[in-house]
Nucleic acid binder design. Structure first.
Lengths: 354, 354
DNA sequence: CTGAAAGCGCTAACAT
DNA sequence: ATGTTAGCGCTTTCAG
């Protein structure tokens, strides 16, 4: 059986309230002698307040719910890590649900956050909010995605702009036929990155045909397959342009890793035969061979902004939401590796490649 | 304001209890007409039971606490993912705390799980349990680590055996001077892997000097540095044997990835100049260049066993623990890649290397 | 078949 | 400065 503040009160010879006043630095003062006896009793009995009871009482738990794609994508792994750290800093515990990208099941998870009276909810998945009527929620929330017209505070990266810069970089290297390995088109952020690629190519009078885009899921396997499709001779026979890309803009680092592997298997040298720039800036892109050049998304900044938006004391009205739906767009920075051609790739034979 | 079962009762013209009977399917029967009215009211009002109140009432929340090293190590990322999936399958929500490997702070997290009356706690971190007196806990728990003498159910891989097999594999390839890139010696599982390396080398009459072991933290950066140290000429001048390793057993895939990168930078060809076998079997080891040969730990099996031990109905006594402290050791299987020399590495130039 | 009421642990408003 | 008590939402036992 667990020890309650009643046991403490009895042992210290005071009333239960006094125990509360001591543990909480109460709303009211306690005499030195009483405090001492209470503290002694707490120590002796090993009393710890029941956090569940507290949460119940004030109708709010001290956990924050997070709905996020699985950490098999290292970008989301890093994001989860940063979020956890930030929440702990604020005194909250992370409750994590992994998105299935099935609107129905994801909605169940979100509702369960609501049912459990989470202190707040963070939705990091691009697939979900569209299907969920977030309006009717009673809990502070923040979306880490750029959903147009969403009436909820959100913090996200300006993917159209950032992806544009990534494509620019390849163009700067003199590439003209630049392919695009895309994530699922249903994800808004992926769609934006493809849009940016197309816009940049057209703006420069360069090809932006459908044949230059290969869609895949966001995984190494997906990236590997997409690259093979993109560079297969088959693609060019059917295309009127029949030009092979000399560079590829890849929508995510994970996919790029898979693409690197595929190139390795196909005997395609990076960056000599094919230049690659990707998106995300995950840590292990720094250790691939060759190192990835990638558009780094400002993860820390996203998360810090989101969490302080969610839990910060800058609350205006009683419903726990800021007065106006806030939308914060952040921009990343290029991380130059070896896959784009800026830095000569280190050869397997100890020298530099031409 | 939130809708409670009182609102529902009022609307349906029944007493609050009846609402409970309906939502919980019992413990007592409800007339068809009453049920219909209640269900209508629930729908109309959008009533959802307050999960927090329920948890409070029966002294147990339906969340499970997990203490785990950060998902920057993809092995733990995958583990967290599998755990989450498994918990959801059982109807629980995951609360995740990331270990800081600081006994004090980790203990705070574990206590907070206790305070919140988690339905169970999973401790995946190797660093923690030693400092924590798990005995005095009131919550079902399971440790995913091999802690000798720990009076708590635990599920883990037989790292001594598995690491031995990894080293065997390198010996089978004819390697004699086999180095070891180790994780922090304070982690029991890493220590075991080094022990296994030493035992296997000695058993075969092969060198197992201290100079052949390089310790680093479990990260790409760490693995990269460890490899450089291990192969630096400096190491051999001071050693009486002055033999460079022709192979390395690396304690984790992440470290191995870093080591691959370092080799790339140093112009060391894998597996021709140096063979590598690592440990864990994370997914992205399948996509490195060259692909890692690694001892795959049976993640699914570990987690399924642990979760059913934790939440399964095979409970004997009232304290929520199985009668005897159970210790389950599982064994992995080798995943053959290209880094060990079994499969000829694919060249950057499209051909096979000699 | 259904209504009333106790109790889970805690806090804070209300008494003293 | 401290004791007493209502009430958070729900389940379930006890009366009807």
């Amino acid at each position: 059986m667990k020890i309650t503040r009643l046991d403490v009160a009895r042992m210290a010879g005071v009333s239960p309230s006094v125990v509360s006043y001591v543990t909480n630095g109460g709303p009211r003062p306690v005499s030195a002698s009483a405090r001492a006896r209470v503290e002694a009793a707490i120590d002796a009995l090993g009393y710890r307040p029941n956090a569940l009871a507290n949460a119940f009482r004030d109708g709010r738990s001290s956990s924050v719910g997070l709905l996020i794609p699985g950490p098999l994508n290292p970008f989301y792994a890093e994001m989860a890590q940063v979020i956890e750290t930030e929440l702990v800093r604020h005194g909250y515990l992370l409750s994590m649900a992994i998105s299935t990208f099935n609107a129905g099941r994801d909605e169940v998870q979100l509702r369960s956050f609501d049912d459990r009276r989470m202190a707040g909810v963070i939705v990091a998945s691009g697939a979900v909010p569209s299907s969920l009527d977030l309006q009717e929620w009673s809990i502070p929330r923040v979306v880490l995605d750029d959903v147009p017209g969403l009436d909820t505070p959100s913090v996200f990266t300006d993917d159209f702009y950032d992806a544009g810069r990534a494509v620019d970089h390849l163009q700067m290297h003199g590439h003209e036929v630049i392919g695009c390995i895309a994530g699922p088109a249903v994800w808004r952020d992926c769609a934006l990155r493809v849009d940016a690629w197309r816009a940049r190519q057209e703006m420069a009078g360069l090809p932006a045909d459908r044949e230059l885009v290969a869609y895949s899921d966001v995984s190494e396997q997906g990236g590997s397959m997409a690259l093979r499709i993109l560079l297969s001779d088959e693609s060019y026979r059917s295309s009127r342009r029949r030009q092979k890309p000399t560079a590829v803009f890849v929508n995510s680092d994970v996919q790029a890793l898979g693409a690197l592997r595929a190139c390795h298997e196909l005997g395609i040298r990076i960056p000599d035969d094919l230049a690659i720039v990707s998106f995300d800036g995950v840590r292990y892109g720094l250790f691939s061979n060759p190192r990835l050049t990638t558009m780094r998304r400002p993860l820390q900044e996203i998360v810090r902004t989101a969490v302080s938006l969610l839990l910060g004391d800058a609350r205006d009205d009683s419903d726990g939401q800021p007065a106006a739906p806030i939308r914060v767009a952040l921009r990343g920075n290029m991380l130059i590796g070896e896959s784009c051609g800026c830095v000569p790739a280190i050869s397997w034979h100890g020298g530099m490649m031409s």
